[in-house]
């Protein structure tokens, strides 16, 4: 079976500086891959190569290949279509300057869905999936940017889900959210796994342990090792992996 996402010998440079060093890694369909590692080790960069948002960073240079569904991402016919298949949640919440409703309905509308009833269903479902519905259902007209940081983060998640993506990339989605809400979203994500492949960048190793099927440990631009979550936590091959996962540095 072709892996859903595959990185093959992927290197990324910012200017002359190497941000990722020959990463080879694959993600099976309908699994959760947890990517852990200290700050600044290249985790976010790795995510950005999947939907090619890396191209907005001036001076970034990509070597090697990223395959989504067996197709090299730089060979796809339309980068916009590629991005619509991949939901992306960034670490800092971004409520777009439009209403809560429009934030979620934005991408479906662009796909040609305009029926109010149909949009209502999508918006409600996505807001429920992101555990935001109960807090905003009475004020869907509110400007998205007026929500609190944690709410905006969940709005971002709802927006990412609005396209029913086949891949969902989450970049430290919980740093602006309280623990209780985080747990609720984690439950939702575990259920969403039936419908999509999830790549979860996190610096909370316990979050990766709770959720991920596989864990990859990236340190200083290099993929130190990766494997099944249980294996990684109980018997890592490299000594440094064990030390990181046990919270001895990072």
């Amino acid at each position: 079976m072709t892996p859903h996402i595959e990185f093959r010998n992927l290197s990324v440079f910012y200017g002359g500086k190497r941000a990722l060093d020959r990463i080879s890694l694959s993600v099976r369909r309908n699994t959760i891959l947890g990517i852990v590692g200290p700050a600044n080790s290249g985790k976010t960069t790795l995510l950005k190569t999947i939907n090619r948002t890396i191209e907005f960073i001036s001076g970034a240079k990509v070597e090697g290949d990223v395959f989504v569904d067996g197709e090299e991402v730089r060979a796809v016919e339309s980068v916009y279509a590629l991005r619509r298949r991949i939901g992306m949640v960034f670490p800092l919440p971004v409520g777009l300057p439009m209403s809560v409703y429009d934030n979620v309905a934005y991408a479906p509308r662009r796909m040609g869905i305009h029926g109010r009833a149909e949009l209502d269903v999508i918006v409600e479902q996505c807001l429920r999936d992101s555990v935001l519905w109960d807090e905003v259902k009475d004020r869907l007209d509110l400007l998205g940017t007026r929500l609190s940081g944690g709410q905006q983060q969940r709005l971002t998640l709802a927006r990412a889900l609005s396209l029913s993506p086949e891949i969902l990339c989450l970049d430290e989605f919980s740093i602006a959210i309280d623990p209780v809400t985080t747990m609720k979203i984690e439950e939702v994500l575990m259920r969403l796994r039936e419908r999509m492949t999830i790549v979860l960048v996190t610096n909370l190793t316990q979050q990766a342990r709770r959720m991920a099927d596989h864990v990859a440990f990236i340190n200083a631009s290099e993929l130190v090792e990766w494997g099944e979550t249980g294996q990684m936590f109980s018997a890592p091959v490299r000594e440094i992996t064990g030390r990181y996962l046990n919270g001895e540095f990072g």
Binding site: T53, F56, R83, F90, P97, Y106, A107
Partner: peptide
């Protein structure tokens, strides 16, 4: 981040 968010939505 606004630009990036919009572009990430395709």
């Amino acid at each position: 981040s606004y630009r990036e968010a919009a572009m990430a939505l395709g």
